[in-house]
Nucleic acid binder design. Structure first.
Lengths: 178, 178
DNA sequence: CGATATCTTGAATGAACATTCAATAAAGAG
DNA sequence: CTCTTTATTGAATGTTCATTCAAGATATCG
C-alpha cells in the first residue's frame, strides 16, 4: 500500500515492491500472480483499513453530526500532511488506472459505492438528530460529500495552504448539511 | 497531450510519444530535452487551450450566470464521455506526479491559481447581476467550485451514471451561488 | 552555386523492467 | 525418521525503457 501510494502504480517497480513487502519476486508472483494482483490486494486491504477507521471515528463521537465533523477534520489533516502515505490510495488509483483496467475500475467502483452507502446512513442519522435544514435526500448529500472529499484531496495537492483547505472543508460541511 | 491523457505520464513510453507526435526520439530530445520536458510543454499547451475554451464559453453567453451554467454542463459532458482525451490533463497530472516532481507541481499550482482567479472574476460578475444569495466572498466561491469540479471528475471515473453526474453538478451550482 | 549552420533520422546503448524457474529450504504427514 | 508437499530464493530471461549520437538531409545566406 505504501509503495503504491508513494509512487503510484506505474512508477512502482517490482524492486520497490520487493523492498516494501520483504518478499522475493517469486513469492510475490506465487501469492498474487502478478503486479496487478498485488495492487488489487493492496486496494482491498486499504479499503478494509479505511472502513474500520471510518467507523471508529463515528462511534467515538456522541452524535452523527459530531462524527461527520471529526471525519472531515481527519481528512483535512491528511490533506495538509506532506507524508505521501497519508494520501488516499483509492483516489490515486481511480485517477491513474480506473480508465486503463476494467478489473481495477470495478473494485474501485464498488468501494466507492460502499463508502457512499455508509455516508448515506450517516445523513439519515443526522436528519434524526435534527441537524439537516433542507429536504435533500441523504443519498444526494452523501454523493456531494464524497465528491467534495475527492475534490479536496486533488485541490490540496495543487494548493497546500492549511488555512484554505480547512475553510473549504468547513464550507463543504455547511453545504452538505443545508 | 492525448498520449499523456490516455496513459498517464508514467505509462506513456517514448514510443507512444513518437507515434503521437510524429517526431523521432532525437527530435523530441532536441526540442524538449527529455520526457518530462515534453510533459511540461504539454501541460502548458493544454492550459492555453483550456483557458481559451473557458473564456469562449463565458463570452458566448449573455450573462456570467448563464456562462457558469454552460461551463458546468460542458464539464458534465466531458465526465460522461468515454473518450479518454476528454479527461482533464491537469487533474491527472496533479494526482499522478505533483507529489513526485517539484517543477511539475509548481506549474500545476500556478495553473490552478489562474483558473481560480478567472472563476473569482466570474463570481464578481454574477454578484453584480444579482445572482448570489448569501455573502460569501467570490474567492471562496471560486475555491468551492474548483474543488467541486475536481471531485466530479474523480467521482465520474468510479460511478459513470450520467444522471447522477448531472445532478451532482446541478447541486454544485446551487451551493456555489447560495 | 557553394559553404555553413541547423534540423532530422533511426539504429545503438545500457539500464531497468516484469516475469520465470530450477534449486533450495521448510513444513507436514505417515 | 522418511517421504511428500509446499514455500522461498535470487539469479536468469527477454523485453521494453529513456536517452544518445553520428550520419544524412534540409535550410540559410553570401
Amino acid at each position: 500500500m505504501n509503495a503504491f501510494m508513494e509512487n503510484g502504480y506505474n512508477k512502482t517497480s517490482m524492486q520497490d515492491l520487493k523492498r516494501a513487502t520483504g518478499l522475493h519476486p517469486g513469492s510475490i508472483y506465487c501469492a498474487f500472480e502478478n503486479k496487478k494482483g498485488l495492487l488489487l490486494a493492496a486496494l482491498e486491504q486499504y479499503n478494509q483499513d479505511r472502513t474500520a477507521e471510518l467507523k471508529s471515528i463515528f462511534t467515538q463521537q456522541h452524535s452523527a453530526q459530531c462524527g461527520l465533523n471529526a471525519y472531515l477534520n481527519s481528512i483535512v489533516a491528511e490533506c495538509i500532511s506532506d507524508d505521501p502515505t497519508q494520501a488516499c490510495l483509492s483516489q490515486k488509483a481511480i485517477n491513474e488506472i480506473a480508465q486503463q483496467d476494467d478489473e481495477a475500475q470495478q473494485v474501485l467502483s464498488n468501494q466507492c459505492r460502499l463508502w457512499q452507502r455508509f455516508m448515506c446512513d450517516v445523513f439519515v442519522e443526522i436528519a434524526q438528530e435534527g441537524g439537516l435544514k433542507g429536504e435533500r435526500k441523504p443519498e444526494q448529500r452523501a454523493q456531494s460529500l464524497i465528491v467534495g472529499i475527492y475534490g479536496l484531496r486533488t485541490y490540496s495537492q495543487a494548493q497546500k495552504d492549511p488555512h484554505v483547505i480547512a475553510s473549504i472543508a468547513k464550507q463543504l460541511l455547511i453545504d452538505v448539511c443545508r
